[in-house]
Amino acid sequence: MAYLSKNLSVLSSANAFTMWHYTTTDTAATVDTEGYFNQASGMLRVGDFIVANVDTDGTPAHGLFVVLSNAAGVVDVGDMVAVGGTDTD
């Protein structure tokens, strides 16, 4: 599957920082692919957090992505840090 704008929503925004929520049937490794969030490049800023529910139709995982870069319309997020503090690819 691919990024779906209807699944990205703002949880909170203050001081040039936004916390987002995203849910998808894609795995954490797919979401972590550079360019996955390119369609949202006009909204996402470096340092924003994305609280995520991934692989919702398989083995669900929950965690946090951080926007590492957003330049020329190309967005890259870091590996998901799963709830409990374990890195997930």
Rank of each mutant, 00 (worst) to 15 (best):
S9L: 12
S9C: 09
V10T: 15
V10F: 05
V10C: 11
V10R: 14
L11G: 05
L11Y: 11
L11E: 13
S13A: 15
A14N: 14
A14C: 07
N15Q: 13
N15G: 13
A16K: 13
F17E: 10
F17C: 05
T18R: 03
M19L: 14
W20S: 02
W20K: 01
Y22M: 09
Y22A: 04
T23P: 00
T23G: 09
T23Y: 10
D26M: 06
D26G: 04
T27K: 11
T27I: 04
A28S: 09
A28Q: 01
A28N: 01
A29Q: 10
A29P: 00
T30I: 09
T30S: 06
T30G: 02
V31E: 00
D32F: 07
D32W: 08
T33N: 06
T33E: 12
T33C: 06
E34L: 08
E34N: 08
E34R: 13
E34P: 05
E34H: 04
G35K: 13
Y36P: 03
Y36H: 11
Y36L: 05
F37C: 03
F37V: 03
F37L: 07
N38I: 04
N38S: 12
Q39D: 14
Q39K: 12
Q39T: 11
Q39E: 13
S41Q: 12
S41R: 02
S41P: 03
S41V: 05
S41F: 04
S41D: 12
G42Y: 07
G42P: 04
G42C: 08
G42R: 08
M43A: 15
M43T: 12
M43V: 10
M43K: 15
L44V: 01
R45T: 11
R45P: 00
V46S: 05
V46C: 04
G47Y: 11
G47D: 07
G47H: 11
D48A: 11
D48K: 06
D48T: 10
F49G: 02
I50A: 01
I50S: 01
I50N: 00
V51C: 08
V51H: 08
V51S: 07
A52Y: 02
V54F: 01
D55G: 10
T56A: 04
T56R: 06
T56K: 06
D57F: 03
D57T: 12
G58C: 07
G58F: 02
P60L: 02
P60N: 05
P60D: 06
A61D: 13
A61Q: 14
H62V: 13
G63P: 02
G63I: 05
F65Q: 00
F65I: 06
F65C: 01
F65S: 00
V67I: 14
V67T: 07
L68T: 14
N70C: 06
N70F: 00
N70T: 00
A71H: 05
A71S: 12
A71E: 08
A71T: 12
A72L: 10
G73N: 08
G73H: 10
G73A: 09
G73L: 03
G73W: 09
